[in-house]
């Protein structure tokens, strides 16, 4: 009894530094956000003291059509980018995992986007998207005839898809590397056993590779979804949420409210809502996928 509690005390003492960091860096700011969300706190303090205003920020937020548009845009972005990005990551991982010539060269090339800051990537794509004669429009003119062009990021009907493609390209190598590690974890014997059982290559994928990647898939689905819900940099540089709110995301909205219009209390309410929503989605995904596998 006393031995146990002593060793427990020791364990707690060893955890302490990490706990302090967590409290200082995560818990305190988060608690502050919750507090601010119930006040009319401004970015630059005014002579009038900050007041507690109850749920006013939340009520105003739920009344703002732009807030709902930001949610819809964010959800749409996640629904589009997650399957698309995971599919190209898995495809690239399968190719790089096969015994192709110059595999290590291709591997190095494939992870290049990871080495570039997002701002640089966006700058590159801004050139690609340029009108009327950027590279993408040059390609488009091959099919549509000269003189035609698409305003990829300026047109509400293509802006979101353009952001999706850019974002997937910018970060797919991360998922690809994790898929590669997952593929290499699948024992070679299983593929050989499947060959002996008469499985064709797509059946080996269906019955060996895909189930073997189950945990990797769950992990990547959650991580990629959270990443997608945080979409900001691309939008902020490229479209500022436009055109006409077509690419305003929650974080973009939060940023506008917190900095551009200085309403920190209001932005905190958005942040708290965002945090709760992301946590709920991640928990639901986990729950759902776990049960499905266990059954």
């Amino acid at each position: 009894m006393s031995i146990k509690s002593r060793s427990q005390r020791q364990e707690l003492a060893m955890l302490l530094p990490a706990v302090i960091f967590l409290i200082a860096l995560i818990v305190v700011p988060f608690a502050l956000s919750i507090w601010f969300s119930f006040t009319d706190q401004r970015l630059v303090p005014r002579p009038i003291p900050t007041k507690v205003i109850g749920f006013t920020n939340y009520l105003r937020m739920f009344d703002d059509p732009l807030f709902w548009q930001a949610i819809w845009n964010t959800v749409l972005f996640a629904l589009l980018v997650v399957p698309f990005q995971l599919a190209i990551s898995l495809g690239a991982a399968l190719i790089l995992n096969a015994a192709i010539p110059f595999r290590s060269v291709f591997r190095a090339i494939a992870i290049l986007p990871l080495l570039l800051p997002m701002t640089v990537i966006v700058a590159i794509w801004a050139v690609l998207f340029r009108i009327p004669n950027g590279p993408l429009n040059a390609a488009y003119q091959w099919f549509a005839g000269s003189g035609n062009y698409v305003d990829w990021i300026g047109n509400p009907s293509t802006a979101m898809v353009s952001i999706v493609v850019l974002s997937a390209w910018a970060t797919f190598p991360y998922q690809m590397l994790i898929y590669l590690a997952g593929l290499q974890d699948i024992p070679q014997d299983l593929y050989e056993a499947a060959k002996l059982d008469g499985a064709k290559s797509w059946q080996r994928f269906r019955y060996v590779t895909w189930p073997g990647l189950r945990n990797v898939n769950i992990f990547l689905l959650i991580i990629t979804t959270i990443g997608a819900l945080k979409l900001f940099t691309q939008v902020n540089i490229l479209t500022k949420g436009g055109p006409n709110g077509a690419t305003t995301t929650i974080i973009q909205y939060l940023f506008q409210q917190g900095y551009a219009t200085q309403k920190v209390g209001y932005a905190s309410a958005v942040a708290v809502f965002f945090f709760l929503a992301v946590t709920a989605i991640a928990l639901l995904q986990r729950r759902f996928l776990k049960n499905e596998g266990e059954a």
Partner: peptide, 18 residues
């Protein structure tokens, strides 16, 4: 392999885990 009329038992057993 599947058309040779053979069956093989692996050292690792190689059972499909799922």
């Amino acid at each position: 392999p599947s058309e040779r009329g053979i069956a093989m038992v692996f050292q690792s057993y190689a059972l499909y885990p799922h």
